[in-house]
């Protein structure tokens, strides 16, 4: 028998496989592909702004699946089932966040080095981008889940969630891009990213859980 959080994690992985999990990577690719058309064929410029473009693309790509992250469970009664599990509700929400990160954010982390080459980003910088995304995207996944919880049940929730989340994502974006700069010591920005990931990792499930509890009332 699988423990309840693990069961939820595995179920969400299976649902993502059957429901277009690769959409985020396609969107990420489109952002990276369109950038040279917008800024021109200046390779030096592309190489310089490449990490920022990769981070922006990844940030926007993480928002794509938010409208269905909790909405589907809300609509079909799945949230009630999750609530009745013999595990803390917040832990179950944590399992959903982990599944969301695994299916939405992890592919972006893996794709980032490949897309970095398209922007003429150097190998060392590309590695830093991937590492920064690996550390920073869990914070984005947690923020996204809180936003999804706040807007679940609303008719235009899919549009409202990103509006709520993007301002809160700015610190992650700032430190994420700073951690990719090859000309500086990245210990500070990377430590800040780790800190944000840990804080959001703890507060995210609690905030989303509390929001969903209030929603039931």
């Amino acid at each position: 028998m699988t423990c309840p959080p693990a069961a939820l994690f595995l179920r969400d992985l299976a649902l993502a496989r059957s429901g277009g999990a690769g959409l985020g990577v396609v969107f990420f690719l489109l952002v990276v592909t369109l950038t040279p058309f917008a800024v021109g064929p200046d390779l030096a410029l592309l190489g310089r702004i490449g990490p920022a473009i990769l981070w922006l693309g990844a940030l926007l790509a993480t928002l794509l699946g938010l409208d269905r992250l909790l909405q589907a469970d809300h609509e079909d009664g799945g949230l009630d089932l999750i609530f009745l599990a013999p595990a803390p509700f917040e832990l179950m929400i944590g399992a959903k966040i982990l599944a969301h990160w695994t299916t939405t954010c992890l592919p972006l982390v893996i794709a980032a080095p490949l897309f970095g080459m398209m922007l003429d980003v150097g190998p060392e910088t590309t590695l830093r981008v991937a590492l920064a995304l690996l550390v920073g995207t869990p914070a984005l996944a947690c923020l996204g889940t809180v936003g999804a919880a706040l807007t679940v049940g609303l008719r235009r929730g899919g549009l409202l969630a990103p509006v709520l989340i993007l301002p809160l994502s700015v610190p992650v974006l700032i430190f994420g891009v700073a951690a990719c700069d090859p000309g500086r010591d990245v210990t500070g920005p990377m430590s800040a990213l780790v800190g944000l990931a840990l804080v959001y990792g703890v507060l995210g499930p609690i905030a989303a859980g509390a929001t969903l509890r209030l929603l039931r009332e």
Partner: peptide, 19 residues
């Protein structure tokens, strides 16, 4: 709480394990 994207069996396995 039936998921369209999962088989009948997988739906029930999840429900059993979650509960």
């Amino acid at each position: 709480a039936v998921k369209s994207g999962l088989s009948v069996r997988r739906n029930l396995i999840f429900a059993r394990d979650a509960l």
